[in-house]
């Protein structure tokens, strides 16, 4: 499972990059494709934030992780640097996990 994910993810990532360098640009210059492509990372990253902070398998779960993410959000609003954002989330989550 782990090796499968690693190998296919890496192979597809490289194929996509190579496609950009080799495929004639008109193939990928469709405006609709470009608009959608620009939004895909935002949609996927948003989904990942939700999936990783409040779900467990197919269930919605509120636990220590959400507290950590809430603190990370506050840190981002405060324009703190990335390592501080992640560490504040980690510390908050660990504290709540142990207090619980």
């Amino acid at each position: 499972m782990m090796w499968t994910v690693l190998i296919f993810t890496s192979a597809f990532a490289l194929l996509i990059k190579l496609a950009g360098h080799y495929v004639p640009s008109r193939w990928l210059s469709n405006p609709r494709l470009q608009r959608i492509n620009a939004l895909v990372p935002i949609a996927l990253l948003s989904a990942l934030v939700v999936a990783e902070s409040v779900t467990n398998k197919a269930r919605l779960v509120i636990d220590h992780r959400l507290a950590g993410v809430a603190v990370a959000l506050a840190a981002l609003f405060a324009k703190l640097p990335f390592p501080v954002v992640v560490i504040s989330a980690v510390v908050t989550s660990a504290l709540i996990y142990h207090l619980h």
Binding site: I42, L45, S46, L48, V49, E52, S53, H64, R65, A67, G68, V69, A72, L73, L76, F82, V85, V86, I87, S88, A89, V90, V91, T92, S93, A94, L95, Y97, H98
Partner: peptide, 16 residues
């Protein structure tokens, strides 16, 4: 127990 499971969504949030 080290809060790493909250570090992942926090990292995603930072990227987003």
């Amino acid at each position: 127990s080290w809060g790493l499971d909250a570090g992942v969504p926090a990292a995603f949030l930072g990227l987003l």
